[in-house]
Design a binder for these strands. Sequence first.
DNA 1: AGTTCCTCCTGGTTGC
DNA 2: TGCAACCAGGAGGAAC
Length: 297
Amino acid sequence: MPELPEVEVVRRGLLPFTAGAHAGRLDVLDPRSLRRSPGGEESLRAALDGRLLGAPMRRGKFLWIPLAEAGEAAVVVHLGMSGQVRVDDATRPDPPHLRLRLPVIAADGREAELRFVDQRIFGGWWLDRLVTDPATGERIPTTAAHIALDPLHRQFDPDAVHDRWRRSRTRLKRALLDQSLVSGIGNIYADEALWASRLHPERRTATLSRAQGHAVLTAAATVMERALAVGGTSFDALYVNVDGRSGYFARSLNAYGRTGEPCPRCRDEGRDGVIVREAFMGRSSHRCRRCQPRPRT
DNA sequence: AGTTCCTCCTGGTTGC
DNA sequence: TGCAACCAGGAGGAAC
């Protein structure tokens, strides 16, 4: 499932094929991938055709490609649950679940196709307008303007997040997944950050000390940086980079997807903690029963 | 106004 | 064996 590290891997892969590249005619194989694009297929195609593209940008899980000759516009690319952007030679056969195809001529003259593949169609592309984010001065699409800074952003401020947590009545895992409080974290890295900081997903955020708030946010940043360094987390063919290759971080996960296995930390320290899986807000949560005990209510 | 729930989707897995 | 129900979850918007 694409979260911040996986989206960043895609952004880096796209860079040589968008920055200074020219777009061709967009081919829409499934209009549901343009559900969020105002004006639909026609508007997006008109905005892209023949246009000079800029360097792809990212905040949290949102990725966008600025349209260089119109400093006000960008194409937002969201991978949703199962989205991929592949850079392929046009002669290669269409992969399954291909939804969108955009021919490009890169700045160095190479020709390629950007192929949006999305099995579950939770992701999509849409045309958006760029506005200035008052907090950072950055240009950002209107549909991402409400998204908080992510833990890998230069100006990310854990104290500000902790302050908001202190004033909220919500629980920690929900707060980690709320993209308007801190962005980029999904179910996998939330469980990993909670495990690393020994905190229970249902802990009330208002009861967290500043040190605990820092611990879980630092853990999120660390685990996402480590995942990024090895190409992200792939469980199956649902997440791959622009060349179609999987990331290697799944083998480094300590809690997510490890139901019934010994907790690695407990095992190292001679205890017998086991990873359990529990439903929480309609999602599965994985934690060590021993070192992430349920808080007293 | 803050918080929770539902919906959008497909394909692999589970259960009868 | 076959088919239905269930599960995975990012994010927006409805509902409370």
